[in-house]
Computed example of a mutant assay.
Amino acid sequence: MFVLVISGSDVSKIPGVSIAGLNPEVIPYTAPADADLLLWGKPHVIDAIPVDPQGHPTPAIITHAACCEAGFPILIVRSGTYLPPVVPYIEMNVEPGQDPQTNQAVSKVELLVEKSKSLGQILGKSSKKIVIAESLPGGTTTAYLILKALGYNGMVSSASPVNPVKLKEQIWENSAQRIGIKPGGLSGDPMKAIRELGDPMQATVFGMVTGVLEETDIILAGGTQMLAVAALLRHAGYNKPLLVATTTYVIRDKFAHFLDLARQISVEIYSAPLDFSQSPYPGLSDYEKGYVKEGVGAGGAIWYAEQLGVTPDRVIRKTEQLYHAMIKKN
């Protein structure tokens, strides 16, 4: 089972944080459009492919290509997006996360985690492998806040070739001042960390993982956002093996400390060997220059496809075919 958790946070509205949409008005459509594209092959909530300001397509196209080739089942979970997708989904009935510089980030976090735990229990009874992915504009920033509060040292990744490091550090300073903590100040208290600094996606994935049966394999599909979820689980006493599946682009990100953070959190890593360097489409070949990097579980989808006998090269070729068809229609 491939589960995509779509979510929202007011952190994405802070100028300079997210390049998930062409402009601030588009950001609320990004996550639901990713869900539409993943399940149905094109967005329906908005009549356009989600792109960054330079026109690079959402990594949902890679995840969709992997699904097309491998045929794995997909479930969409809506946890606090500004708008719902058009495709069928499970509704967690929560609001988008708030800006932790001025407010608690996630209200009723205990209830959200409990509901998510029940969902994990249900899914764990029907699947031996569950790959959990996310789509959340601004999510690397909330991931940074969580990691910092739990006491981990290192910078998170970014969808941009130039990571807005100074901005993320300033958001941390402002948020920490509101709460009255220093780095590591919420170590051992994952629920408070999510409540004060996190986002609904983190709470949902955290709950799902704790609810899944012991014999079911869990793969966290994403970059530093899923490292933050893994860190929360570790601070809740979750000692089972965890695999975070990402892309080679996140591993190579010179602004981030992915491998060092993974070592600190004690998680295993899978790096999807994507290579669009020979692609005739700049929207895809620019992934090699540090644009986008990861999202919508692209790395985890490649991992899942490989488990089902589909090579990364097949997924790359399918991605190019899908992208060609999409730009031709537009």
Rank of each mutant, 00 (worst) to 15 (best):
89 Y>W: 07
118 S>A: 15
132 I>E: 08
77 V>C: 06
42 K>P: 03
105 A>W: 07
153 N>A: 06
80 G>V: 02
109 V>H: 04
162 V>Y: 12
110 E>A: 10
88 P>L: 00
71 G>A: 07
136 L>E: 10
165 V>R: 15
170 Q>D: 12
158 S>T: 09
125 K>S: 14
170 Q>P: 00
124 G>S: 10
104 Q>H: 14
147 L>G: 08
66 A>H: 05
141 T>F: 03
130 I>A: 01
100 P>E: 07
55 G>H: 08
85 P>W: 01
84 P>A: 07
95 E>T: 11
98 Q>P: 00
133 A>N: 05
107 S>G: 06
167 L>C: 09
127 S>G: 03
91 E>G: 02
58 T>Q: 07
80 G>S: 04
63 T>P: 01
89 Y>M: 04
131 V>T: 13
128 K>A: 12
78 R>E: 14
173 E>S: 12
100 P>D: 08
88 P>W: 00
61 I>C: 05
93 N>S: 10
152 Y>I: 11
154 G>H: 06
79 S>L: 06
52 D>T: 14
136 L>A: 03
131 V>D: 02
115 K>A: 06
154 G>I: 05
111 L>H: 10
160 S>N: 11
69 E>Y: 01
128 K>Q: 14
125 K>V: 00
61 I>T: 09
125 K>C: 06
155 M>S: 11
52 D>G: 04
95 E>M: 10
130 I>Q: 00
81 T>D: 05
55 G>C: 10
88 P>F: 00
116 S>P: 08
45 V>T: 13
109 V>F: 04
78 R>Q: 12
152 Y>S: 06
149 A>N: 07
79 S>G: 04
66 A>Y: 03
104 Q>S: 11
142 T>K: 01
44 H>A: 07
98 Q>A: 13
88 P>E: 10
134 E>M: 04
119 L>M: 09
99 D>N: 15
102 T>K: 13
173 E>Q: 13
127 S>M: 08
159 A>M: 09
120 G>N: 07
69 E>P: 00
127 S>P: 01
66 A>T: 11
113 V>C: 12
62 I>T: 00
49 I>L: 15
